[in-house]
Simulated scan of single mutants.
Amino acid sequence: MNKPAPFSLKDKAILVTGGASGIGLGTCERFVQEGARTVIADIQSPPQSLLDEGALYLHVDVSNRDSVMAAFDSAEAAVGKLDVVIHNAGGPGKGTHLIDSDEAVLDRVVALNFYGTYYVLKYAPRRMRDGGSIITTASVAGLQQNEGFFDYSATKAAVISMTKTAAVELGMRGIRCNAVAPGPVRTPMLPPAHILNTLAKQLSTLGRIAEVDDLVGVYHFLASDESRYVTGHTLVVDGGRLTGYRKEVLQLLAPP
Rank of each mutant, 00 (worst) to 15 (best):
L82R: 01
L253T: 01
T243S: 15
T117G: 08
P192F: 12
G239I: 13
T231R: 02
A75H: 01
E34K: 10
E76Y: 00
S21L: 14
V212H: 03
A89R: 01
V218S: 07
T234N: 15
L235G: 03
G131A: 06
V180G: 07
P6E: 14
G183D: 13
S45N: 10
L222Q: 04
L50A: 06
R108G: 00
D107H: 08
L253R: 10
V60D: 01
K201E: 15
R241S: 07
T17F: 05
D130P: 00
S45W: 00
A77Y: 01
K247E: 15
M69L: 11
L170Y: 09
V16P: 00
A78N: 05
P6W: 14
Q44Y: 04
D11V: 03
D42Q: 07
E169I: 01
N88S: 15
V110N: 04
T27P: 00
K94W: 03
G91D: 13
E34C: 08
L15R: 00
L250S: 10
D213C: 10
Q33F: 07
V105A: 14
I209F: 11
I86E: 02
T27V: 15
P188Y: 14
L250H: 04
N2M: 11
L82W: 02
D102M: 10
R127T: 06
F114D: 03
T155E: 14
I23N: 01
D52M: 05
H87V: 07
N88Y: 02
L58V: 08
L15W: 00
L206F: 13
F7R: 02
V120D: 02
G24Y: 07
N88V: 14
I209E: 13
L58R: 02
